[in-house]
Write a protein that binds this DNA or RNA. Structure first.
Lengths: 209, 209
DNA sequence: ACACCTAACTAACGCCTGTTAGGGTAATAA
DNA sequence: TTATTACCCTAACAGGCGTTAGTTAGGTGT
């Protein structure tokens, strides 16, 4: 019979993918194909179950995509905050900013289908789902604003930078990476270094030195 | 023959929106709602005709969206090239780059539903449609690479910048603006100045001077 | 042995989709 | 006048969608 799959997962029932399994697969498909192209039947098939069975775990497609979006922000938020707090207490401003940029980019590219799915499909989901995701987003944005404000206060950044604009520009730039990044052409870490170099020092050849 | 025909049709025919009218409306709807949410019936209704009638002008939905994507790149390409060639011949490198950034951002925000639709929906359309748009994109990318290479050669830019990466970063940053830009909070021109300031000089407070 | 819970199944519902075939009508060209 | 062209309409098709109701099988606790 079909018991070969049963032995693989022995802690729970024979092949149960469960709520988390469905969510993982949904996040991957959303990241790969966008929101509109991923039907519940596609998710179900990838999970090895039937479409109707999804409704045991979720009340609607919106509920699935909302869960994916929220998890996406939470992951990148935790990654970014941990990367900053893990630094030595005497780390200078530049080091802190570089760590934050690196953590965001890694969450996008290396760590999480949830985070990359969030960036890719946020603009495609129904308004109500976007709205439900807003509080989580706002919390992450506040983390960045707090960090950037600190860097401005301690003199690391120029005094005329607009925190909100800078944050939108930074995150926008990092997120845009998803549209073209190819791991065969370079690592996420190397790219994050390039990003930081440009943002911190600019691309203009300087007369001084 | 064909000339007064065109005039009379425009003035007297009862409702004829024509191919261009359908395309304009499609571009606007794609920009506002994304690819998947815009059906042929929605486009038809906004144009004041019935869904089946669209097939008089276009062979398929893919053909419509492909036309929108191509026009979007062509517009921003022309805008950017014109902005650069309109400069005085003795304009310095920094001025040229600022003009190019400004032109791209204006095409995105102020000028064309086609360009903003392109940026918004490119990642949502079928692979075949994306592929059809690639040559047009490549031509625009080549325009940027040529400009940036020139700036590197004449010493405006640092000698260690990677042209391709810089171009991807620049266009990615500019395009990401669409996700949050609100004309009530500032003009596209003012924003393009901020962008140029950051890219050219960085955000770090400098010790010198 | 019993009931209970979990996690799946089947089958269908109404709706929307892109697309097609065939028909109509007003304006122009011969 | 007649023929032609440009533009749009109606009506339907097959297929995919999210969703629901009712059912079934295995694991667990008593």
């Amino acid at each position: 019979m079909a018991q070969n799959t049963a032995i693989k997962v022995n802690e729970t029932s024979r092949s149960a993918v469960g709520r988390d399994g469905v969510l993982d697969i949904a996040a991957r498909l959303f990241r790969e194909q966008g929101y509109g192209s991923v039907s519940l039947r596609k998710i179900a098939e990838a999970a090895g179950i039937k479409a109707g069975s999804i409704y045991y775990h979720f009340g609607s497609k919106d509920e699935i995509v909302a869960a994916v979006l929220d998890a996406g922000i939470r992951v990148v938020h935790e990654n970014m905050r941990d990367a900053v707090t893990d630094l030595r207490a005497d780390a200078d401003g530049e080091t802190v900013l570089r760590a934050a940029i690196r953590a965001h980019l890694r969450a996008l590219i290396d760590v999480s289908d949830y985070t990359s799915a969030n960036v890719r499909i946020f603009g495609q989901v129904p308004q109500s789902v976007r709205d439900a995701n807003l509080p989580t987003r706002r919390a992450y944005e506040a983390e960045w604003d707090s960090l950037l404000s600190q860097l401005k206060k301690d003199g690391t950044l120029k005094q005329d930078v607009d925190i909100r604009r800078l944050r939108l520009m930074l995150i926008g730039t990092l997120n845009a990476t998803l549209d073209w990044f190819d791991p065969d052409r370079g690592s996420a870490d190397a790219l994050s270094r390039t990003y930081a170099d440009v943002f911190l020092n600019g691309i203009l050849q300087r007369q001084d030195t």
